[in-house]
């Protein structure tokens, strides 16, 4: 095992450990905005520990789909996270086209949770499942547009250095986040800043944060994700909560990876971590100052993000 792999493993370990901190930060920021003290920062950890010690209640309608859903979803999210370069270190598992696998793995997790929701036979959860399916289907092309922009940047880099043999390697997440995007926007290519912006919008959409969904209210007719996981309890709920935190980390790391300038290894990793935590705070700010969008407006938000992403894509093609 070489040094890079060790460093990456440390980063991955940090991500797995620190991920439940993000919801805590968000909640703290929101509480401060509302003039409250707020829950402790480590509340998610306490929740997880308590949930793991509890038993489960399973409705009589449910089958194995319901019980297996959260486990499958968490496994898929973990695999997706392991493909992502973290803190500037390329993933040792990375390969050409791994962003496709990561995107579809997240899809796999969603699919498992949707089926688990439909398995309860409650109209309430059917509602959440239906909305989650719809909005994630619409978010998928947006995610691809940003990735396409990043791949064409890294393909450019490969062509300029003349290593055409490494074409497939340029299509991996590790190559995309190899720092060329950051260097380019630092050199004045402002359109590249649209990529982290779109990633941030996707973070809000995919993690059901406020302009799209309100994670705090289970019992309103407008909710998406929280409604879907209403019937889970015990270890299964713990897996869902932890999986959601990991997914939040995944998107925050995507955003941060584009914002961190190339620095010496440890400094870059530290900066990346700081940006991820700052992003969590930013989510808290967004949640405090914005109202939730009407459901029919969410496709517009995604459409706007898609428009920004395609503008960036077109401009990267030209240069």
């Amino acid at each position: 095992m070489n040094q890079g792999t060790v460093f990456y493993l440390i980063q991955l370990f940090l991500a797995l450990i620190l991920a439940p901190l993000l919801p805590g930060i968000i909640n703290r920021v929101k509480a401060r905005f509302a003039g409250r003290q707020g829950k402790p920062l480590l509340q998610t950890y306490y929740d997880l520990a308590r949930l793991l010690r509890k038993g489960e209640v399973i409705g009589r309608t449910a089958t194995w789909t319901f019980s297996a859903g959260p486990g499958v979803a968490l496994a898929a999210t973990l695999c997706a996270l392991a493909l992502l370069p973290l803190g500037g270190a390329p993933s040792p598992l990375g390969f050409g086209g791994d962003f496709l696998l990561a995107a579809y793995l997240l899809g796999m997790g969603r699919f498992a949770l949707i089926l688990a929701a439909l398995d309860t036979g409650s109209s309430f959860e059917g509602m959440g499942a239906s909305r989650e399916a719809a909005f994630s289907a619409l978010a998928e092309p947006v995610l691809f547009l940003v990735f396409l922009m990043l791949t064409s940047l890294s393909l450019d880099l490969v062509r300029h250095t003349g290593q055409s043999a490494e074409l497939v390697a340029a299509l991996s997440l590790s190559a995309m986040f190899g720092g060329q995007a950051t260097e380019a926007w630092l050199a004045g290519r402002a359109e590249l800043l649209l990529a982290p912006a779109v990633f941030f919008v996707l973070l809000l959409v995919e993690n059901c944060r406020i302009p799209v969904d309100d994670p705090n209210t289970h019992l309103e007719l407008t909710m998406i994700h929280e409604v879907m996981v209403l019937d889970h309890s015990g270890p299964n709920l713990a897996m869902i909560v932890y999986g959601a935190a990991l997914k939040l980390w995944f998107f925050a790391a995507l955003t941060a990876g584009l914002l961190t300038p190339p620095l010496p290894l440890w400094q870059q990793a530290g900066l990346c971590l700081l940006i991820i935590l700052a992003l969590a705070a930013a989510v808290g700010v967004v949640e405090s100052v914005m109202a939730r969008l009407r459901l029919t407006r969410i496709p517009h938000l995604l459409g706007g993000a898609a428009a920004l992403a395609s503008l960036a894509l077109i401009l990267t093609q030209v240069r």
């Binding site: 004045g188 290519r189 402002a190 359109e191 920004l308 503008l311 401009l315």
Partner: peptide, 10 residues
């Protein structure tokens, strides 16, 4: 200049 042009497009 490129930044301004990009902002114009946006």
């Amino acid at each position: 200049l490129p930044t301004i042009l990009f902002l114009l497009l946006l």
